[in-house]
Simulated scan of single mutants.
Amino acid sequence: MSDLIKDCLFCKIIRGDVPSYTVFENDDVKAFLDISQVNPGHTLMVPKKHITNFFDYTAEDARRYLQYIPAIANAVKKFDPKITGMNITANNGKSANQVVMHSHIHFIPRFEGDGLKMKTRNNADKYTEDDYKRIAEKIREQF
């Protein structure tokens, strides 16, 4: 676990310096209950390598760590038959509400009528065909 850093909360959880409610662990990732429990079963998955967020992933990091998303999502869903959906999210950077600067994925179980709102907005009326083409072209150029 030499890829961990001293002052990172999730690195401390991986090392066992901070207790957690672990639901899955192997050589690559650790999944544990989020202490906030937005809904019952809210789980986090973290790589056992300190990576700040998805902007710092290599292709190999993605292959190694993200392969566990379906298994963890299904395990969380199966724990309660009342779960009808799930938000699987990752906040990347402070402006995207990333609080712990160690890559992590949230698995938030959803229940009919749970009242949880994931806020987005539709700005389609503010964009022209040319705007879409210009933005798409600029993104394509980054590959």
Rank of each mutant, 00 (worst) to 15 (best):
N39M: 13
K48T: 13
I14D: 12
G115Y: 01
D27P: 02
L33C: 04
V76Q: 11
R121S: 15
H102V: 13
V100G: 12
K119S: 11
F54Y: 04
K77D: 02
L44I: 14
K12W: 10
A73G: 14
F10T: 13
L66I: 09
G41V: 07
Y127L: 15
G115M: 01
V23G: 07
D125M: 05
A96N: 10
P40H: 10
K6F: 05
G113M: 03
Y127H: 08
I69H: 01
A96Q: 11
V38F: 08
S20N: 12
T84L: 01
D56W: 03
D7H: 06
P40F: 08
Y57G: 00
V76S: 04
H104P: 04
F55G: 12
I14Y: 04
V100D: 14
K6D: 14
M1L: 11
I35C: 10
S2N: 12
N92P: 00
A96S: 13
M45S: 05
I72Y: 04
G41M: 08
M45G: 02
Y132W: 12
N87Q: 11
Y57M: 03
N26H: 03
C11D: 11
K49V: 11
K119R: 11
D7G: 10
K126R: 15
K126E: 13
K78Q: 14
I105M: 02
V99A: 15
I69L: 02
D34L: 14
G41H: 04
I135F: 14
Y57S: 00
D130M: 03
I14G: 04
T84Q: 10
E141Y: 04
L116V: 15
G93P: 01
S103T: 08
I105N: 00
M101S: 15
G85F: 08
